[in-house]
Each structure stands twice: as C-alpha cells, then as structure tokens.
Amino acid sequence: MGLKKTTVMVDESDLELIKQVAAREGRSEAEIFREAFHLVAIRGRRWEEDWDIPVVDLGRPIGDEEVRRAVGDAIAGSEDRDQ
C-alpha cells in the first residue's frame, strides 16, 4: 500500500519527545509518526462477524487466587527454562 502525505498539528512538547525518540532509536520522525498512526488504526479496528473463540469449561468456577497462582507458576517455570 502506498503512502499518502498529510499534515497534522501536534503539541510542541509531544513533537520534542518524538524528536528525542527518533534520535535515540536512529529512526526518522516520519517513521515514528507512521508507527503511531498504525497503532491507533489497529486499535480502532472493528470486525463485523463474531470470532470463533472456543470456550474452555473446567467443570467448576475458577477463582482469582487460582488464576494468580497458575500464572505465577507458569512464569516461574519459564524463568527456570531460560536459565
């Protein structure tokens, strides 16, 4: 898909931050702005059809503490594998 030139007004302090990020990352300001526009476009995307997301039924309610424990165990396990 081709690029289209546009003009936008931005807060001066935001522009200064963009300049800093671009310099730090070795990227152009335009590239940073394109990335920002793309992220907002994706965030705002809507789908007409329902998603086919499977429902997992464990046969009983799952509480907050059980979820926290399972996530903690999974994180601890991945840290063990990384070493």
Rank of each mutant, 00 (worst) to 15 (best):
S13L: 13
A70V: 04
R34L: 03
R69M: 10
E65F: 09
G63W: 07
H38W: 12
D57F: 12
A76T: 03
S28M: 08
Q20S: 11
E35F: 11
V21W: 04
I42Y: 10
D50I: 00
F37L: 04
A74K: 03
K5C: 01
P54R: 13
R46I: 02
L39R: 15
A41E: 11
E31P: 01
L39A: 14
F33S: 02
I32G: 09
D14F: 15
I42K: 14
E25H: 13
R43Q: 13
M1D: 09
L39T: 12
G77M: 03
I62K: 07
A36W: 02
A76W: 01
A23H: 10
A36C: 05
E79Q: 12
G44N: 12
A30I: 00
P54T: 05
R27Q: 12
A70Y: 11
S13V: 13
F33W: 12
E66V: 08
I62D: 04
A76H: 04
D52K: 03
A70P: 03
E49L: 00
I53P: 00
S28L: 07
R60L: 04
R27P: 01
R68M: 14
E16S: 06
L39G: 06
A41Q: 12
G26E: 07
D73A: 15
L15K: 06
R43C: 10
P54S: 11
V71L: 15
L15D: 04
S13E: 14
F33K: 12
G26T: 05
D80W: 12
L58K: 09
R27N: 06
D73R: 13
E66M: 11
V10D: 00
D73W: 05
I62M: 08
I32E: 13
E48L: 04
V40M: 12
R24P: 00
I53Y: 02
S28Y: 11
K4R: 13
K19D: 10
R68K: 15
P61Q: 04
D82N: 14
I75M: 09
I75A: 09
D82P: 05
G44S: 13
A22P: 01
D50G: 05
P61A: 05
D57R: 15
V67S: 07
G72W: 03
E16L: 03
A22S: 09
P61T: 02
I75P: 01
V71T: 05
G26F: 08
F37T: 00
D50T: 03
A74F: 05
A76R: 10
G26R: 06
E12V: 01
E65I: 06
R34V: 00
G59A: 10
Q20P: 00
E79Y: 11
D80H: 12
I53F: 01
D73C: 08
A23I: 03
